[in-house]
Design a protein around this nucleic acid. Structure first.
Length: 1118
RNA sequence: GGGCGUAUAGCUCAGUUGGUUAGAGCGCAUCGCUGAUAACGAUGAGGUCCCAAGUUCGAAUCUUGGUACGCCCA
């Protein structure tokens, strides 16, 4: 006996119970343990940050991260899944600041770094419980209690080890970086923060004269929108490929050089004719020297030269250079360059420096202090806030005849997101870099070996990003992060990197560790891990090996938290201090998956660190490509209900918990997996999630509950199977009443064939990481199982002989289908699969596997697939469908029997098979006969159409004419020839084209005047003539339906036998009933049928059959 | 401004290497079933495949240009 299936199953409730079962029985651990000797399948968890609530987007990534490991585990692989948490970084600091109502670094330092760090460490876990709950509730199997945490000492030390490695190999260096700087607050802003603060403002746009040194009375006309940067001018940039003009300005009596395309436009601005004297390409201007408007630096360095790498001497600055970012869309086609205050300008400086011998090129000049005010290096403006200096600088230019033209222009400019009156400026800061550019080719080569899904990521977004690789700006002037493990000699400035805490403690003359010890003593709850963080680690100093008496002090910076997460492949194990064997066996990963925003985040940081550390030149281990991951599914962005970005304030999405409570995790998972390829943007719509229940989960469930219902009635019990284990088809042989599929009926063989085909399709799709394709196959199978197999098999389940072999066949077939399909869907919808499995194997007690997730994925048995049968059945279903269509068109309801249908097949190959199965069609279409005819000119017109795919390449340009010739030809005649000779010839433009059967496709067109319908392969014609007998038979079916209705109203058991009275005044109806008494009694389980009113007092109900009234009396028979 | 992606039915989305009748689900309409019933089934209506040009015998599919939207970066 199976557990009866409740009528109203609550999937969410059922899921909760299953979670409990998994927990109590350690199913996840067992699923791992039994695969321990299997081949490894390595999965990396990209660590989320638990300092914010999880949202629906995280459900998608977590569902995806669960699917493939579960699948691979069932396929026999050993797949450990270690959870992880990303804990460092600015977002955490910002969260804590918000809580405390502070904002600037000054305020943090006032509050104290020590308590601040402690708050950060606590804040990280604020939402951890919610994250863990979501993870578990979604059915994401991952080892939460063994998670790696980026602030843990062992993790930090792993990161240090890698940084020391890079430093010792000369791959970690200090340089400048231009960042968006909030001068008033003294801090850099992250790009996200900058993006929040854009406002539309008016700024001056000025055209300035840069007099050329070697050309008399001639100036380059240079454009800028930030006058305050002009005192820091170092270059002027033109585009080599733009044409420039030398024009004469009569008013100034002076020659100007700027882009030729802009001559008219600029002439209009100054309202005078500028006459072009000569033109040249920008490349001819490169190298010309000019005199900058201000001489703060020029007076010292204007004549300084340096040695180029090619041996020549060149002036270090105030030259025309070329830059391809210069355009003629605005300005003059010549741009003022102040490398200190613009990222592209700075890159231009780096490019210039690179042309010179080391130390010979231009230095960065910067006359602005971090507070945003001019320094004494620009004495005219010293102490002025740069933005306030715009006006006096423009006035000075004007007074000194350097200003050609001034206008205001409107543009977007970033302001501080917290102090929205404060404009940000681009500003150079000292920063630490990882020399990734040195490994650009290796990065690209490594990327080529990674299997990206979708494929365009490889050479698209990710590949492009690698092509334009710049050195990784690693350091952050912040507090809560992995401290950069570099100590500097206070006297000489010599540096060294430290690889772990013990190495530090072993240094001579070590002091400062007591600061941590005191803090710990005062507050024993402090996690030990904090001792490797600021401020404690900063207190630790030691004797300098570079100068006697000097001390080594740590640099103040922490590192980019992306480096933390990118170091995860080794740092999760604490490698190399510990976990060597784990690391080596779990590197590289077979599979990772995150959303597309990780392209420049975790995908890159992992690839970069891994390539630098484990690439060809490394002195640690080396590893064949691809690493650190082989397959990566890049998920699309998740959108809210309205198709917009999800936003808390707009409330355009439902909390995941609400979805779990209403519809369950399976519904959400199936929606993610089955509705679209995972890399498209996914709309998170409650309605769509809800729909996955009737579309798939409930449909599967209904088949299962149908099975249980009847199996219990008939006492079907598979318990006779010896050693059921995981119930592979092979063990079912021992079951009571089991006979091999080959001996069963066609329908059984058909559904088992479809099952095997589905299985091998799903395996093929899943091995290609195509979950969507797999789900399409699964859905189609479950639909066929429910709407064809079960429906067509009902008779057998209802048959009264419980031991009839055909009935047992049906049970064994459906049992095999169900036990197999739940294994197939287990990785997708683990809960409902488990629920079904447990009941289906419940009869075995302990001799079957307790959980479907401990089973192996079924192995496809090719011998059971039968392509021919599959084709035949599909043709049969098509004919049934066309027949119904014809009935609809003729307005003849299915309950009304008809005398027959005539079927005309395009291709008669399967006719014999179909004839053997006419009973099915008779029942489906409620007709008394099915006839096939080949000679059906009466009903249909034969159309022949060329097989374009085949003929196209052969006849080429003649194709349209061939098509026409086909249309003009007599279809039936050509078919005749083809069927007798196997070939025919048509003539097109004097060419004889020989055709064989393959070159021609036949289409049947139903003729007008018949109740007919056509499908791709057949036409079905109804005989619509109704005899009185047929009409009466139709009425008897109406009667059956009314009786069944009444039975249900009376809440009868569906095995209850009844006595039935049917009373009517209509002779016609009475005759109909009397004629079909046996049929009515059989269908309604009546032991007696009377046409007179009962003697006993039995409640009657009045119904109508057509026009006639009918009274129905029912009594349960004993 | 640059890179990448997307655009197909009222809605959400599929559409394999170019092949002439472009599919599914939901919704809608009509009908059916009423012993699988928070159901279910059938049938149908609904499409200038974003626009334009090109390549081709043939384009939703390839190329170019444009438009709109999204993401990333400036």
């Amino acid at each position: 006996m199976f557990q009866p299936v409740e009528n109203n199953v609550s999937f969410p409730k059922q899921e909760e119970a299953i979670l409990e079962f998994w927990r109590d029985n350690n199913i996840y651990d067992k699923s791992l343990a039994q695969r321990e000797n299997g081949p490894k399948y390595v999965f990396y968890e990209g660590p989320p940050t638990a300092n914010g609530k999880p949202h629906p987007g995280h459900c998608l990534t977590r569902a995806m991260k669960d699917l493939f490991p579960r699948y691979k585990t069932m396929r026999g692989f050993y797949c450990e899944r270690k959870a992880g948490w990303d804990t460092h970084g600015l977002p955490v600091e910002v969260e804590v600041c918000k809580e405390m109502g502070i904002h600037s670094k000054e305020e943090i330092e006032e509050f104290g770094i020590e308590p601040f760090i402690q708050k950060c460490q606590q804040s990280v876990w604020q939402y951890m419980r919610q994250w863990e709950q979501l993870t578990e509730r979604l059915g994401f199997w991952v080892k939460l209690d063994d998670a790696y945490v980026t602030y843990h000492q062992s993790y930090v030390e792993s990161v240090w080890w890698s940084l020391k490695n890079l430093y010792d190999r000369g791959l970690l260096y200090q340089g400048h970086k231009i960042i968006w700087w909030w001068a008033q607050g003294g801090t850099a802003l992250s790009s996200g923060e900058v993006g929040q603060g854009y406002k539309t403002v008016m700024d001056p746009s000025i055209f300035v004269l840069f007099p050329l040194v070697d050309r008399d009375n001639t100036s380059l006309l240079v454009w800028t929108t930030t006058p305050w940067t002009i005192p820091n001018n170092q270059f002027a940039a033109v585009n080599e490929d733009i044409e420039y003009a030398t024009v004469y300005d009569p008013e100034l009596d002076h020659y100007l050089i700027f882009a030729k395309d802009l001559v008219e436009q600029i002439g209009q601005k100054v309202k005078r004719e500028l006459e072009i004297k000569s033109t040249c390409m920008g490349s001819k201007l490169v190298g010309l020297r000019y005199v900058p408007p201000f001489d703060f630096y020029y007076k010292k360095l204007g004549q300084k030269t340096g040695q180029l790498k090619d041996g020549q001497q060149q002036f270090v600055a105030w030259r025309v250079t070329s830059a391809n970012f210069v355009t003629t869309e605005s300005g003059s086609g010549a741009v003022h360059e102040a490398p200190a205050f613009g990222e592209v300008d700075f890159e231009l400086l780096l490019a210039e420096q690179d042309r010179f011998e080391p130390g010979q090129g231009p230095e960065l000049i910067c006359a602005v202090a971090p507070n945003g005010k001019f320094t004494d290096e620009a004495p005219d403006f010293a102490g002025q806030w740069v933005k306030d200096a715009d006006k006096p600088i423009v006035r000075w230019l004007k007074d000194n005849g350097k200003l050609f033209f001034l206008e205001q222009y409107q543009h977007e400019y970033p302001f501080c997101w917290r102090a929205d009156e404060d404009p940000l400026i681009q500003y150079p800061r000292r920063s630490w870099f990882v020399k990734t550019t040195q490994f650009k080719d290796e990065l690209i080569a490594n990327n080529q070996k990674i299997n990206w899904l979708p494929g365009h990521i490889k050479d698209g977004r990710f590949g492009n990003f690698l092509e334009s690789n710049v050195d990784w700006a690693l350091s952050r002037e912040r507090y809560w992060g992995t401290p950069l493990p570099i100590w500097v000699c206070e006297k000489t400035g010599e540096k060294e990197a430290i690889g772990n805490y013990d190495e530090l403690l072993a240094k001579p003359g070590i002091t400062g560790t007591e600061v941590w010890e005191k803090a710990k003593a005062a507050n024993p709850d402090l996690p030990e891990d904090l001792k490797v963080h600021k401020p404690y680690i900063d207190e630790v100093t030691y004797d300098s090996p570079f100068a006697s008496g000097a001390r080594m002090r740590r640099v103040t910076e922490v590192i980019d938290c992306w480096y933390d997460s990118g170091a995860m492949p080794f740092a999760q194990w604490g490698y190399p201090q510990e976990g060597t064997s784990q690391f080596e066996s779990q590197f590289p990963a077979d599979f990772i998956s995150e959303a597309i925003d990780q392209t420049r985040g975790w995908f890159y940081s992992q690839l970069a660190i891994s390539t630098l550390l484990f690439g060809k030149d490394s002195d640690t281990m080396t590893c064949e490509y691809p690493h650190p991951f082989r397959n990566c599914i890049v998920l699309g962005l998740m959108l809210g209900e309205d198709g917009q970005k999800m936003s808390k304030s707009k409330r355009n999405y439902k909390e995941p918990q609400e979805i779990f409570d209403k519809f369950g995790a399976d519904a959400l998972r199936w929606y993610f997996f089955a509705n679209q390829p995972p890399w498209t943007a996914i709309r998170y719509r409650e309605q769509a999630i809800k729909e996955s229940i009737p579309e798939f989960i409930l449909r599967l469930w209904n088949v299962y509950s149908f099975f249980v219902l009847y199996a219990n009635i008939d006492g079907f019990n598979p318990a006779s199977i010896t050693s059921p284990g995981q119930l592979e088809p092979a063990v079912m042989v021992s079951g009571d009443g089991f006979r091999p599929a080959s001996e069963r009926g066609e329908l059984d063989r058909w559904v088992l064939s479809e099952l095997q085909q589905t299985l091998s399709d799903v395996i093929e799709r899943m091995d290609a990481y195509d979950n969507y394709g797999a789900c399409v196959k699964i859905t189609a199978f479950v639909d066929g199982l429910s709407n064809w197999y079960v429906r067509r098999s009902r008779d057998r389940f209802w048959a009264s002989d419980k031991r009839a072999q055909e009935k047992l066949d049906a049970y064994w077939t459906l049992y095999e289908c169900l036990t197999t399909i739940v294994k197939i869907v287990a990785p997708f919808v683990p809960f409902v699969a488990e629920a079904i499995w447990q009941n289906l194997v419940g009869v075995f007690e302990d001799s079957a596997l307790a959980s479907v997730h401990l089973c192996e994925y079924p192995t496809p048995a090719g011998s059971k697939t039968n392509a021919q049968l599959s084709r035949q059945m599909s043709l049969l279903r098509e004919i049934a469908s066309s027949g119904r269509s014809a009935r609809m068109a003729a307005k003849l309801k299915v309950r009304q029997p008809l005398s027959g249908v005539t079927v005309i097949l395009n291709d008669p190959t399967e006719q014999a098979w179909l004839e053997a199965h006419e009973a099915i069609l008779m029942e489906e279409l409620n007709v008394q006969s099915v006839t096939y005819t080949a000679d059906a000119g009466e009903y249909v017109t034969y159309q022949i159409v060329p097989n374009f795919k085949r003929l196209g390449p052969r006849v080429g340009k003649l194709m349209p004419k061939v098509k026409q010739a086909f249309a003009d030809a007599d279809g039936s005649k050509i078919l005749e020839e083809l069927s007798t000779d196997g070939k025919t010839v048509i003539e097109v433009e004097d060419e004889q084209i020989e055709l064989d059967n393959e070159d021609v496709e036949v289409r049947l067109q139903a003729n007008e005047g018949w109740a007919a319908a056509q499908g791709p392969n057949a036409v079905v014609v109804l005989s619509t003539e109704l005899t009185p007998e047929l009409i009466r038979l139709g009425k008897s079916r109406d009667v059956v339906r009314l009786v069944q209705d009444r039975r249900k109203e009376m809440d009868l058991q569906f095995t209850d036998r009844i006595d039935l009275w049917l009373v009517t005044d209509s002779d016609e109806l009475r005759t109909a009933i009397d004629e079909n008494r046996e049929y009515i009694m059989k269908e309604t389980l009546s032991v007696s049928l009377n046409l007179e009113s009962p003697a006993d007092d039995i409640e009657a109900i009045e119904r109508e059959v057509g026009e006639d009234k009918l009274s129905i009396f029912i009594r349960v028979a004993n």
